[in-house]
Computed example of a mutant assay.
Amino acid sequence: MEQILIVVGAAILGLLGAVHLFYTFFGHRLDPYEPAAIEAMKGSTLRLTRETTVWKAWIGFNASHSLGALFVAAIYITLALWHMDLIRGSLWFSLLPLVLSLCYLGLARAYWFRIPFTGILISTLCFGAAAVMLHL
Rank of each mutant, 00 (worst) to 15 (best):
C126K: 08
L96I: 13
P35V: 11
T45A: 13
M84V: 06
Y111F: 15
L105G: 01
D31A: 10
M41K: 07
V7D: 01
L107F: 15
F22K: 14
S44F: 09
Q3T: 13
E51G: 15
I77F: 07
A57G: 01
L105N: 03
H65I: 03
I6F: 15
R88L: 08
R29Q: 14
L98G: 00
I38H: 01
L16D: 03
W92A: 08
L105D: 04
L125Y: 06
F71W: 10
L107I: 14
I59Q: 06
T52L: 09
F113I: 12
S66M: 03
G89K: 10
A63T: 06
F127C: 01
A69R: 04
I77H: 03
F113M: 11
P116R: 09
L67Y: 04
P35G: 08
T78A: 14
H20K: 09
F61A: 14
L30Y: 11
L48H: 08
P116W: 07
L107V: 13
C126A: 09
M41R: 02
F26T: 12
R109Y: 15
W92D: 02
L121H: 05
M84R: 06
W82N: 01
K56D: 06
S101H: 05
I38S: 01
V132K: 08
L81T: 10
V7H: 02
L67E: 03
L30M: 14
F93I: 11
A36F: 08
V8K: 03
L125C: 13
I77E: 00
H20F: 11
V54F: 07
W55V: 06
F127N: 00
V19W: 07
M133L: 15
V54L: 14
W92E: 05
I12R: 00
C126Q: 06
V132A: 12
V54A: 12
L5F: 12
A80D: 02
T118G: 06
F71T: 12
L100H: 00
G119N: 07
V8R: 05
C126T: 11
L13G: 03
H83F: 12
Y33N: 13
A10S: 14
V54R: 09
S64I: 15
Y111D: 00
G9Y: 06
L102M: 11
L100C: 03
R47S: 14
P35L: 08
A37N: 09
N62D: 07
H28E: 12
W58I: 02
G9Q: 05
G106H: 09
F61P: 01
V72D: 02
W55M: 04
L102W: 02
N62I: 09
R114H: 11
F127M: 08
R88P: 00
A110Y: 14
G27T: 09
L121M: 13
K42V: 09
L67V: 15
D31N: 13
A37H: 13
L21V: 14
W92I: 12
A80R: 02
L134W: 03
A63C: 07
N62T: 10
R29D: 13
V99N: 02
R29A: 14
L136Y: 14
T118A: 15
F25A: 10
L15T: 14
F117I: 05
I12Y: 04
T24G: 05
H20T: 10
L102T: 09
P97K: 02
L125D: 01
G14E: 00
L5M: 12
Y104T: 05
F61G: 10
F93S: 02
V19D: 02
W112Y: 13
Q3C: 07
I6Q: 04
A63H: 04
M41Y: 10
